[in-house]
Structures are given as structure tokens and as C-alpha cells.
Design a protein around this nucleic acid. Structure first.
Length: 554
RNA sequence: UGACCCAUGGUGUAACGGUAGCACUACAGAUUUUGGUUCUGUCUGUUAAGGUUCGAAUCCUUAUGGGUCAACCA
């Protein structure tokens, strides 16, 4: 197979490095901070990092960037591990930046000894003003002149807990006039008397990101450290520290993060959605989190395929939600078992069907996979059909039920609509029809052609269930880019709860994690949180494509 | 009014100096016991201006547009 798929720019770099003998094999890492749940943007990074290692025969570490104890928690560590595995990836090593605290401390000492770091007693405001602005160089203060011995002593005292939070910081001595603000003597250690989720109270000073991430990469021997665009300016510091510390030269490469229409993709914003009650939780099925998507019914494969298709580049992007939906439909169409469910019930009475008779109909579980066989569905003279499948006055384009029209009841008989009943408010309460006995599915000798096929549930056998329909979380394509508070663009109709839907009996065997196509309605899965033995709750993963709905909009 | 990054159809991504392709979307048609699936077809693109070259989306210059950077966050 000479399937030639073009390489993304990172793959080109890796192939060049491998060809030049720069590395014998590659080592990547996925480095989340355990301060929130993973979202689809992280999935892109996960697929990239693990995918690269898989493709080039390398390995990937899972490394938690846990250098800020006040925001981090083991709850997040557990969810992140679960999400990565659910996506289908296995890390070579589970590491934590906090594993390296002792080593990092030694690195800082080395920097002091080289005259490249100093303890600064300034307040954060003073440091900020002394830093200057992007257009004005910063100025170094008197603390930069401290002796090596003094710096070493104070830094040791900082570690020993002799100083209060915020009273002192350790700064790298780089270049206060650099046009790159990150090189203006960046803070590399700060005092935080806080309990760390792993090291407990062993430390009261913690390294900053810039003094932990690159060093951790280096310690692990990461060959290609891949991160998002906003870290581009950090690369100069990343390289400077590796050079001064004389450690393994990991290299950082940056790609554009994923953005998607009608949602937000920052942990901070997602946390707000949760904290302010706009959604149920981090795993609310409307959230773009991995856990939310899992609960909604997305499959790992659909997410991987999506990440594969969107590519990796350096330009800002805003991916259409429809692309993600395409991949779930593609996967679920092939794998989901077909079932019938009526979401908005309307009675259909077959007036010529023998009173009290029940027939068992056979219906394929999945036409795309004949090996999944068939199931039996009870049929009787009193059915529930979808209210939207009946129309009092139909146009020539209408294929469904209307007075005088003929439709196929899926996997059962063809019926002819003979009339309907209304209540005092003019609301249709019942549709009347006659069935054609010779038209039974599989042995149809009637010669009658029905243009439309509709789904149904035998009223006497119907099982009641709750069905939750989801729509886009926001009303605008890019809420983060709009004026004002992004939350003012929340779609108030993103969740519709249908309490009284009717489902076919076979669905009572549904288990969490099963995927179904409710014929003509979409793909559904059991809600892992709200569903229980006495009350089945289904989430709609995504609708089916609906050309009729499009036709109607014209 | 500094530095850095980026610029290809509606969206995303290829083409590595030699015919602008692929996917999604949209549209049209065929098939269909899901108005699903499948199949066929159609529309839409190199930000601009110069330059180098036999030849430029690609290299150079300038402009324009977008993004990033002044957290003891990552």
C-alpha cells in the first residue's frame, strides 16, 4: 500500500531528525495540569502526542504539571487518566512534575551559583512595574546585586519556611531589556505555604511553569515537546535554561490549539459554566469535555478520527461542529443497533386489525452489519406514532401519514390513513387507518407502494422512558470572541427533556455504554448519571441527517 | 505604537519552484421498508502590490489583515 498521506509540520521535523540520526527514537509527553477536566482540545493534543509515538515507534509519557498546589487536585488526576485511556491511549510512564521538586531545587541552586539567579524581595506590583512594557525595557533593582552566598542562604531559608507567601521570589537573571517579556528576569520560584496533592507539606516553595516544564522534559529525555502557540515566547526561556543548566536538550514545537463553533474551549470558562450552574457538571453532555462527550454518546473512535482529520498546523482555526458530528454519525451508523422510539406520541388505531391480536415482527438490528441479526417487536392494532409524522393537509412532497395516504410501518404492514380525531382545541388526538394484510414486511404480496416509512410502538407493549435532546451550548459561533460576557450567549434551549417517550421493549436491556440508533430520530445512549433500573434516561448523541427538515426550511 | 507567530473555497487541511487536491458543509440527482446509509455530480479558493524565475500558493520586499506577549497561572 503506497497510501501517501501528507505529513504535518511536526511529522516533517521528526522524520528529518530521525533521518539525520539526531534521535534513535522519539519520546513525547502529554502534560496536563490537574486543575480541571480534559476537553476536546486536549484530545487533539493527546492524539497528536500519542499518535506520533505510535507512528514512529516511540513512547509517550503522561506527566502532570502539578506545580501550583492551590488549584490542583487528585480528583482531576483520576479523571484525566480515565479520559486518556478511554480515548484509547496508554502512556509509557506516569510522571509528575512534583516528582522532580528536589532536582528542580538543585537546578535553581546551580543557577544561583552561576550568578544567573537571585532572590528578589520586591512586591509583585514592584516587579511588574520594573518589568517595563513590551515597548519599554525593564530595569533591574538592587536585589539583583545580592551575593551568591546571600542568595544561597535566603533561598535555603525560603525552602525552610522562614518567609511568608509573596515576600520573596527567586528570579533568573536573563535580560531586562529583552523585547521578549519572559526573558526580563522571570520568576522561577515562589513561596506558597500550601498543601500539595502529592508532596503534602514537604515544600513551601514551588517552581513556576517555566522552571518546571522544560526541565521535566529534559529529565525524561523528551525529544519533541509539543505545545500550543501561546507558548512560542516561552521557547527562548526554555532553551536558555536548558543551555545554562547544561541538561538534555529537549525541543519545543508549537501548534495551533483547537477551537470549535458554538462552544468555548478554555478550562477557566468551562469551570465557570460548572460553578455558576449553567450546566450540571464537568461531564454534562453539552460540555466539550471528554467526559461530557462520553456521557453524550460520542465514541473514542469518532473523536480520534476527528482529531486526525482536522490536521496540525500553526494558524488559528475554528472548526465546524458539523465535522465532529460527521465522524460520530459515521462510526455509529456502522455500529449502533437500530431500535424504535416515539418521542412525541400520537395514537394510531388500525381499525381493521383483529381486536386484541398481537403479532411479533422481525426487524434487523443493523442493516450495515447483517451479522447482528434481528429482533422481535410486538405489533398490535393500537400504536404510538410520532406526532410529526401525521399532517392534516399534505403537500405532494409529504411521504408520511395524511388522510388518504399510504405509509409503511417499519418492519410491519402498510397502512392507509382513513381519518383522524380532534379534541375541542383542534389538537389531533388519534389517527385512524386500515392495514393491508398482504403487505407484511418480508412477505409483501400486496403490490402497494408506500413512499414513506415511519416508526411505531405498540401501545400495550410500550416502555416509558425519559429522553434528553441536546443542542449547541451557545447561540453564536465563537462566544469567546464576542463582545462582553461569553455567558450571555448561552443557548437557553440547549437541553430539552422529554419525560414521556415510548421505547420498544428490547431497549429495556440497554446498558450504559451501549449505542443505539432510534430509527429516524438519531443516535442515543443511556445517561450514566440519571438512568437507573426504574427510570431509563437516554441522551441524544446526535441527530440523523435530515434532508426533509432542510427541504421544509426552503 | 516594540518583538514574535500566522495568512489557500463557507470550514479545516494538502500541494516542499512545474495541472491548486482532499474532507466537511451547501446544492442537484440516483438508490432506499430509516426523507438515514450508499452512489453520482455541481458551486465556491491562493489577502494585496511589486520583485526573482522559462515558470511562483510556494522564494524575496513592502503593505494589509488576524493572533500572541507586560499572572508569585499553566
Amino acid at each position: 500500500m503506497s497510501e501517501e498521506k501528507s505529513l504535518n509540520f511536526i511529522e516533517e521535523i521528526i522524520e528529518a531528525d530521525l533521518a539525520a540520526g539526531k534521535h534513535k527514537s522519539i519520546l513525547t509527553r502529554f502534560p496536563p495540569e490537574p486543575n480541571g477536566y480534559l476537553h476536546i482540545g486536549h484530545a487533539k493534543s493527546i492524539c497528536l502526542n500519542f499518535g506520533l509515538a505510535l507512528k514512529y515507534g516511540g513512547a509517550t509519557n503522561l506527566r502532570f504539571d502539578d506545580t501550583n498546589p492551590v488549584t490542583e487536585d487528585t480528583e482531576y488526576v483520576d479523571s484525566i487518566k480515565g479520559d486518556v485511556q478511554w480515548l484509547g491511549f496508554q502512556w509509557a510512564n506516569e510522571f509528575y512534575a512534583s516528582d522532580y521538586f528536589e532536582q528542580l531545587y538543585a537546578f535553581a541552586v546551580k543557577l544561583i551559583e552561576k550568578g544567573l539567579a537571585y532572590v528578589d524581595d520586591s512586591t509583585s506590583e514592584e516587579i511588574a512595574t520594573q518589568k517595563g512594557t513590551p515597548t519599554q525595557p525593564g530595569v533591574r533593582n538592587q536585589y539583583a546585586e545580592r551575593s551568591e552566598a546571600e542568595n544561597l542562604q535566603i533561598f535555603a531559608d525560603m525552602r525552610a519556611g522562614k518567609y511568608a507567601d509573596g515576600s520573596k521570589v527567586l528570579r533568573a537573571k536573563v535580560d531586562m531589556a529583552s523585547p521578549n517579556m519572559l526573558l526580563r528576569d522571570p520568576i522561577i520560584y515562589r513561596i506558597k505555604h500550601a498543601h500539595h496533592h502529592r508532596t503534602g507539606d514537604a515544600w513551601c516553595i514551588y517552581p513556576m511553569y517555566d522552571f518546571a516544564h522544560g526541565q521535566s522534559d529534559s529529565i525524561e529525555g523528551i525529544t519533541h515537546s509539543i505545545c500550543t502557540l501561546e507558548f512560542i515566547p516561552h521557547r527562548a526561556l526554555y532553551d536558555w535554561l536548558i543551555e545554562q543548566l547544561e541538561i538534555f536538550p529537549s525541543h519545543q514545537y508549537e501548534f495551533a490549539r483547537l477551537n470549535m463553533t458554538y462552544t468555548v474551549m478554555s478550562k477557566r470558562k468551562l469551570l465557570q459554566m460548572v460553578n455558576e450552574g449553567h450546566v450540571e457538571s464537568w461531564d454534562d453532555p453539552r460540555m466539550p469535555t471528554i467526559s461530557g462527550m462520553r456521557r453524550r454518546g460520542y465514541t473514542p473512535k469518532s473523536i480520534r478520527d476527528f482529531c486526525d482529520r482536522i490536521g496540525v498546523a500553526k494558524r488559528e482555526n475554528l472548526i465546524d461542529l458539523s465535522l465532529l458530528e460527521f465522524f460520530v454519525r459515521e462510526d455509529l451508523n456502522k455500529t449502533a443497533l437500530r431500535r424504535m422510539a416515539v418521542l412525541d406520541p400520537l395514537a394510531l388505531e388500525i381499525t381493521n386489525y383483529p381486536e386484541g391480536q398481537v403479532d411479533m415482527m422481525q426487524s434487523e438490528n443493523n442493516p450495515e452489519m447483517p451479522e447482528t441479526g434481528e429482533r422481535e417487536i410486538p405489533f398490535s392494532g393500537t400504536l404510538w406514532i410520532e406526532r410529526e409524522d401525521f399532517m392534516e393537509e399534505a403537500s405532494k412532497k409529504w411521504f408520511r401519514l395524511a388522510p388518504g395516504s399510504v405509509v409503511r410501518l417499519k418492519s410491519a404492514y402498510i397502512v392507509r390513513c382513513t381519518g383522524f380525531e380532534k379534541d375541542a382545541d383542534g389538537r389531533v388526538t388519534k389517527v385512524l387507518a386500515e392495514y393491508i394484510p398482504e403487505s407484511r414486511s418480508g412477505s409483501d404480496t400486496s403490490g402497494v407502494h408506500a413512499k414513506g416509512t415511519i416508526h411505531w410502538i405498540s401501545a400495550a407493549h410500550a416502555v416509558q422512558a425519559e429522553v434528553r435532546l441536546y443542542d449547541r451550548l451557545f447561540k453564536v459561533e465563537n462566544p469567546a470572541a464576542e463582545e462582553g460576557d461569553f455567558k450571555s450567549y448561552i443557548n437557553p434551549d440547549s437541553l430539552q427533556v422529554i419525560e414521556n417517550a415510548y421505547i420498544e421493549p428490547a431497549l429495556t436491556a440497554a446498558k450504559v455504554g451501549d449505542h443505539f440508533q432510534f430509527i429516524r430520530k438519531g443516535y442515543f445512549t443511556l445517561d450514566a448519571v440519571h438512568s437507573n433500573a426504574s427510570k431509563l434516561v437516554f441522551n441524544r448523541t446526535v441527530t440523523l441527517k435530515d434532508n426533509w427538515a432542510k427541504e421544509q426550511k426552503k
